[in-house]
């Protein structure tokens, strides 16, 4: 069984980091994993996106045109990629920055006011952690407790940032549970 998720947003929103944390968690739970960034001209001042593939067997093609899921952190990302998500996939919409919806009724929308929730916690910078935990909880793509450990480890060199990111992680779980 292979699942793919595309993370997309503006450069600086922590897109690549969210995707990397998910990939770490998948690797630690024993899955095959591949993390494929966009590094083309579009990342210079436009949309940054990154795909994570998780599978129980060797992964073939790194070229994914139709991911199972999407985490859209800004409006251009939702408009560009929502149409290519596979049926029944999870489409996370960062409603703090995206006033519209996917326009599809064959996918599961997960509405997450990631920026607002992050500001309430004390820093807009943890919006990506809220998004990745909410997404993981809804999609069940990786084990939540393993992902939590990966987030902790990521900030191990900056221990001051661990508490707020743990709060952000729990906030994401809460939002997913309420949806």
């Amino acid at each position: 069984m292979q699942k793919e998720v595309m993370f997309a947003g503006f450069g600086g929103q922590g897109i690549l980091l969210s995707a990397k944390l998910l990939a770490y968690a998948a690797m630690k739970q024993g899955s095959q994993v591949m993390w494929i960034p966009s590094y083309g001209p579009e990342m210079r001042g436009g949309t940054a996106y990154c795909t994570v593939v998780v599978s129980d067997r060797l992964i073939g093609s790194p070229i994914i045109k139709n991911p199972a899921h999407l985490v859209a952190m800004n409006r251009p990302s939702l408009e560009k990629f929502a149409p290519v998500v596979k049926k029944d996939g999870v489409v996370l919409i960062n409603s703090s920055l995206i006033p519209v919806r996917s326009g599809r009724d064959d996918i599961q929308e997960l509405i997450v006011p990631a920026n607002e929730a992050a500001v309430t916690l004390g820093s807009v910078k943890c919006a990506n952690i809220i998004a990745v935990s909410a997404f993981a909880a809804k999609s069940k793509m990786v084990d939540i407790e393993i992902l939590r450990k990966c987030v902790q480890e990521e900030f191990s060199s900056k221990p001051k940032l661990i508490p707020i990111n743990m709060q952000a992680f729990d906030e994401g779980l809460k939002i997913a549970a309420a949806s």
């Binding site: 990939a23 690797m27 095959q32 994993v33 591949m34 993390w35 494929i36 960034p37 590094y39 790194p62």
Partner: peptide, 10 residues
């Protein structure tokens, strides 16, 4: 190629 350089795998 660029993809092998840029992608992450275990």
């Amino acid at each position: 190629d660029g993809l092998i350089g840029q992608m992450m795998e275990p």
